[in-house]
């Protein structure tokens, strides 16, 4: 498990943790039923608040990517390949929806957004 926190990215830290771990789960870097380290250990190692890590873990659980066994800790949910794909598009579309709101407030048209996305994806 790898987590790299940026203090300048503008995204809340719990969000960064959530995104990085969810990506590692979806890409299969964190195998099914892998035990995640205890929240408090992660907080200590990353030198961040326990509550921040807790929040990230809650988001992961809410997204169905991890499950909790009382007294034992949190584990990666075993997902079938098609369920993984589904999660992937779900996560991406959630993130995109958020960004879309912002683009709309900037007054961009769909074509403009698509053109910009294409350009960014190719570069």
């Amino acid at each position: 498990m790898e987590i790299v926190i940026s203090n300048t990215s503008g995204d809340p830290i719990y969000q960064q943790i959530f995104e990085q771990i969810s990506a590692q789960i979806i890409k299969g870097k964190l195998a099914s039923d892998t035990c995640l380290p205890p929240i408090r250990t992660v907080a200590k190692e990353l030198r961040i608040s326990v509550i921040t890590v807790k929040r990230a873990w809650e988001e992961l659980e809410h997204a169905g990517l991890i499950y909790t066994m009382a007294g034992k800790g949190c584990f990666v949910t075993p997902l079938q390949p098609n369920a993984l794909d589904e999660k992937r598009s779900q996560l991406a579309s959630e993130k995109m929806a958020k960004d879309m709101d912002y683009y709309k407030t900037l007054g961009l048209s769909l074509d403009e957004i698509i053109a910009m996305l294409k350009k960014d994806y190719d570069s």
Binding site: R40, T41, A43, K44, R47, I48, I51
Partner: peptide
């Protein structure tokens, strides 16, 4: 600060500390 986080790691113990150096807290305070 590292020691403080170690101190609370077991979930049993707590720390209240006053400071006016807030960057210390940005790191470790809950």
């Amino acid at each position: 600060l590292e020691l403080f986080q170690e101190f609370i790691e077991d979930g049993e113990r707590s720390i209240l500390f006053s400071t006016h150096i807030t960057s210390d807290l940005e790191k470790c305070a809950d």
